[in-house]
Design a protein around this nucleic acid. Sequence first.
DNA 1: TTCCAAATACGGCATCTGTCGTATGTCTTC
DNA 2: GAAGACATACGACAGATGCCGTATTTGGAA
Lengths: 224, 224
Amino acid sequence: MNGDHMNRPLTFIIADDHALVREGLKMLISSMDNMSVVAEAADGEALLEQVAKTRADLLLLDLGMPGVAGIQFISDISELVPRLKIVVLTANIEPRTVRAALEAGASAYLTKDGDPEELGEAIEAVRKGGTYLARTVRFAISDPSRNSRPAAAADILSPVPLTRREREILALVAQGLTAREIAERLGISPLTARKHRENLMGKLNLHSAAELTAYAVRLGLPTA
Amino acid sequence: MNGDHMNRPLTFIIADDHALVREGLKMLISSMDNMSVVAEAADGEALLEQVAKTRADLLLLDLGMPGVAGIQFISDISELVPRLKIVVLTANIEPRTVRAALEAGASAYLTKDGDPEELGEAIEAVRKGGTYLARTVRFAISDPSRNSRPAAAADILSPVPLTRREREILALVAQGLTAREIAERLGISPLTARKHRENLMGKLNLHSAAELTAYAVRLGLPTA
DNA sequence: TTCCAAATACGGCATCTGTCGTATGTCTTC
DNA sequence: GAAGACATACGACAGATGCCGTATTTGGAA
């Protein structure tokens, strides 16, 4: 074992909206050599605050947090504090999301149902300046040609950037609101709300409110 | 009270589909006095196996597991092994679900975003033969000691048991299928599929496919 | 300043959905 | 064998949705 990383402990920020999960992760990380958790956050706002206040090396980020508009949040942070390595930790294994997270600046992508050992492997890889992908999502990137998905261009096509408004609409759809309710909530015409929804479905290659809802909930958008 | 609980450690089964979360919970519990985790399970089948094989005192059950048809699973287990105390651990805070879980035989109901201290409090309460409700869901139950007597108007919605077919339909709705697609999948008439869906919404007091989908996904039904 | 993407808004049309009925066959259970 | 729950099936009607257009305003980038 090389002793160079024995000097200064690696410092972590843990961002997850479930306190119990945070606690568990904290114990996991603290039980490793030379690792210490210096901050935690349960929502996007608190996270930004902690990122600014502490000088952590590594951010363990649950993509399913409230106030964390998914991918957008990653690019914001990695632009703001490039020094901070971001390890995404989520249940979402959609190729779209994995690609987008990496392109947004994440250094690693772990899934919650993966082998806990992967956490250590990911940390090691990231510490060395590399990247790491959970075994369960490697197929999403490594070999696109062997991916026998029928859904062609639309599905694959990379980050699928949603506009701010579209993300807002998506979150409301995920709560089960109709176009009319969304329109009322946002103070716009129902027809406009419908159009946004249409555009969303077009971009995501989905074809019903139910599919859109399932997608949004899986993405971790607030559903209540 | 007999002091025999100091001799033998309380034994746990941890059931959660996220390996990382399981690991975290295991460390949390192992760090407590006289507690030990004797088994874990990532899906319903494995859980039943472990329940039969080990003689654990306490089951920490994530309601969002695949193969765990929510509430039904709780009544099955508590009927099979009444000795085993069930602590529900989930993100779902719907009054309906809380009530249903308790009536199905759960001894405690914790939420993942609750204070980690609640885990200890719940275990203590359950060990003594009592029940425990997370602070965030206490509002859901007016009087936890009585559970068979309807009291308020809210009882119209109370723990409505879903039929097997309805749970099946619910899972398909959660995947974004339309009535017609569900009908094809199950080999029944689209009108029948619609009727099942209607009944579902009636029982759950929901009013759109999107709401139904959000509900199903939150319940942890498979969404892909 | 020009240009473009984003947000706004509207309409038509086929289809699906939500809500109300009614009805029949098959089980279990009493 | 009667009662009840469950699964099946159909119809009507209003409203919402999915999909196709078009068009105006606006704010920021080139």
